[in-house]
């Protein structure tokens, strides 16, 4: 049962991610991305990380994806098949960047100390998370908070109407 669930979720992530990258229509790509994000949320639930899954849906699906679709809606020629043709040096450079990224990620994946035993559900994930965020990881939490505040202020400043 568990294995079947995992295979379904992983297939959802991979197939929709493939469509996201290959679809010539940007809105279709964004919709496919929604499948990927939901699949990842499903994988989190599968690993008993319920809070993380809900946060994934709130932030990525409810927030970032909405902004992506909203932005894409205003671009011209969304539905047309004309894609930007990039020059050969650019393609080579991007291929190199992708290769470096792939090797780096694969390296991390191979070296990470993966948990290989039976998974145990944690009672009260939210409480544990909250406590550790405000004790052990307080600095990280505060830095992230300040960063978000700065971006909020920056956005408000940019959007401000100039007077006089």
């Amino acid at each position: 049962m568990g294995e079947i669930t995992f295979i379904i979720l992983a297939a959802l992530v991979v197939v929709t991610a493939y469509f996201t990258v290959t679809s010539p229509n940007l809105v279709h790509a964004a919709v496919a991305l929604m499948g990927t994000l939901f699949g990842v949320a499903g994988l989190y639930v599968f690993l008993y990380a319920d809070f993380l899954a809900a946060t994934q849906v709130v932030i990525y699906v409810g927030g970032i994806l909405v902004l992506i679709i909203f932005g894409v809606m205003f671009t011209t020629q969304i539905g047309s098949q004309v894609m930007v043709k990039s020059s050969v040096p650019n393609r080579l450079a991007s291929a190199l960047a992708v290769l470096v990224l792939f090797v780096g990620l694969a390296n991390i994946m191979l070296q990470a100390p993966w948990h290989r035993g039976e998974l145990v559900a944690v009672e009260g994930t939210v409480k544990t998370l909250g406590t550790s965020l405000l004790t052990r990881y307080l600095l990280h939490f505060e830095v992230a908070g300040v960063l978000l505040l700065l971006s909020l202020l920056g956005a408000a400043y940019l959007a401000r109407r100039e007077h006089g």
Partner: peptide, 13 residues
């Protein structure tokens, strides 16, 4: 366990 968060999260879709 995360009832309120779940409902607000899924409604935002």
């Amino acid at each position: 366990n995360i009832g309120i968060l779940y409902v607000t999260a899924i409604s935002s879709v």
